[in-house]
Structures are given as structure tokens and as C-alpha cells.
Simulated scan of single mutants.
Amino acid sequence: MGSLPLFFRLMAASISGQARYPASALLLTVGQFLGTGIEVIAVWALFHRFGEVQGWAIGEVALFYGLVNCMFAIADALGHGFDVLGTEFLRTGTFDRLLLRPRPLALQLMGNDVRISRLGRLLQGVIVLVFATVQAGIAWTPGAVALALFALAGGVALFLGILVLQGTLSFWTVESLEIANVLTYGGVQAAQYPLALYAQWFRRVLTFIVPLACVAYYPALAILGKPDPLGAPGWVGMVSPLAGFVFLAAAFGAWRIGLRRYASTGS
């Protein structure tokens, strides 16, 4: 069996295992939907109180929110194996079992535990996108749809790269979850709002170090047909999602360095 068919089989086995307890899976999914729904209420309350924030309306910000949460939901579902690498694989010694299999480690970890519950966040992101379409009057032309899908793929690659880096840190620290949360959940929070609202140093971080602006801010501007207040040309949003794939490639480069450092527990 090839690597890709094996990945889909592992993914199907993971989903099937969770589906054996449908009530639990449903409650976890609803919990994700309601838990992240608090963030939606917070954004709505902000704009309900002030109307606009530096010229940005709620429908425009809803587009950022919807795109980013869809990206993170998919990446979080696929990258959970990297998330728990230190606690569930390295510490227990079961990582050696994956090394013995003649298949890519990344695919094994991604297919190990695909979380159904992340559908709750994904559904919420889609609902917010519908809201943004109505509020901002977005015209979903074929070009806009293609750009949104391109941005979604780049965003999934970016967040997956962050999870890969989290797993890589586990080769040195075992416990690296709180460090990575600054980039994962903190990154989701930061990318939910337009880049122009932040200080210059933070804009540079979100553009050149962890390129969240490249997968959310610039593509969203192109979809909205809105000029960038910071002066970036309109074509930037058409190509900027590529930064997500570059970040993922760099993360896997660091992953290979971490693998060379790994020593078995001997158990």
C-alpha cells in the first residue's frame, strides 16, 4: 500500500474509533462550536458598541474571522499527532514503533488521531463566512472563490507548520505545549483582525516571521476589493498564501533536525 492510501486508511480508522461513541463525539463537537462561539460574541460586542474600528466594518472583519477559523480547524484536526508527540509518543517510547514502519512519519502522525470535534470550529467559521458575505456584500466570483480556497490551503499549511514545530520542540523539551500555544491559539486571535490595527513591529512579525497576514489579511483584502491602508499593492493577496507552504517546508526542515537528535527510551 502506498503512503497516501495508508494515510487515508489511518484517518478512516481514527474517525471510526471516535464514531463508536457517537454521543461523546457529538458533545465534543458541540463543545468546540459553543466554546469558540464566545469569540464571535466578543467581536460582535466590539462592533455593536463602536460601529466601526478604524474604518473596518463588522462584515469585513467577519471575513478574516471565518477564514482563519476554517484554516485552524482543518490544521488542528490533521496535526493533533504533532500536538501530543511529546506526551503520547516520546515519553512512552511508542515513537519507536512509528520509526520501524516503512512509511513517512508525518503521515503516520497526521493519520493517528484525526479529531472529529474540530468540525465544530469549522462549522462556526463557515457560518461566519456566510454572515460576512451578507454584511459586506461580497461577490463570490470564480476568481474570489479560487483565491479563498488558495488562502485556505496556505493557512492550513501554515498552522500545520506551527504544529510540526511544536512537535519538533518535543525532541528537546518533551513538554512544549504552552510555548506553541502562543503561535497557534494566539495566532488565530491575532489574524482575526485586520493587520492595519496593530503596531508596526507586530505587523512585521505577522508578515515575515509567522506569516499569518499572508494567508488571511492580504487575500481577504483582495476578496473584498478593498485597498490596503498600509499601501501594499493589490496583487500581493493573489500570491501571498504561498508563504504558508514555505513556512511548512521550513518547519519540516527543523523536524528533520529534531529527528536526528532523537534517542530511544530503550523500553
Rank of each mutant, 00 (worst) to 15 (best):
V156F: 12
V156Y: 09
D76A: 15
V128I: 15
A42Y: 01
Y262I: 06
N112V: 00
F247R: 05
L99Q: 15
V40H: 12
R103C: 04
A25I: 02
V236K: 15
A220Y: 05
G155W: 07
Q32H: 15
G81D: 08
F7P: 12
L63A: 14
A25S: 15
R103D: 06
L4N: 05
G120R: 08
G225K: 04
Q200S: 14
A251H: 02
G266V: 02
M1R: 13
H80G: 02
V84Q: 02
R256P: 00
K226N: 13
L149T: 05
S240R: 04
A77V: 01
E175M: 02
Q189N: 11
A73N: 09
R97A: 07
I38N: 10
L100Y: 08
V43M: 10
N181T: 04
T141A: 15
L160H: 15
L99Y: 05
G81A: 02
V164M: 02
I116E: 09
T92W: 00
R203A: 07
G225V: 02
G237L: 06
T141Q: 14
L100W: 05
L165A: 04
F8T: 02
N69H: 13
A196Q: 12
D113N: 15
F72H: 15
E52Q: 14
P229W: 00
T94Y: 09
G17M: 08
R97V: 04
T184A: 12
I41F: 13
F33A: 14
I74A: 14
I179T: 06
S267I: 05
L158Y: 04
L99V: 11
L100I: 01
V134I: 12
Y218D: 03
Q192P: 00
Y218G: 05
L34Y: 05
G167T: 08
L85Q: 09
G167I: 05
L100P: 03
S3I: 03
Q135V: 04
R260H: 14
V164W: 00
G66Y: 04
A106E: 06
Q124D: 06
G154Y: 04
T133E: 10
A77T: 01
V145Q: 05
R115G: 02
A19V: 03
N69F: 10
G81F: 03
R115Y: 00
V130W: 15
A243E: 11
V61M: 11
V30G: 14
V156K: 14
L163W: 10
R121H: 10
G161P: 09
P229Y: 01
A139Q: 14
I116T: 12
W201R: 08
G55T: 02
S14N: 07
F208V: 07
V239L: 12
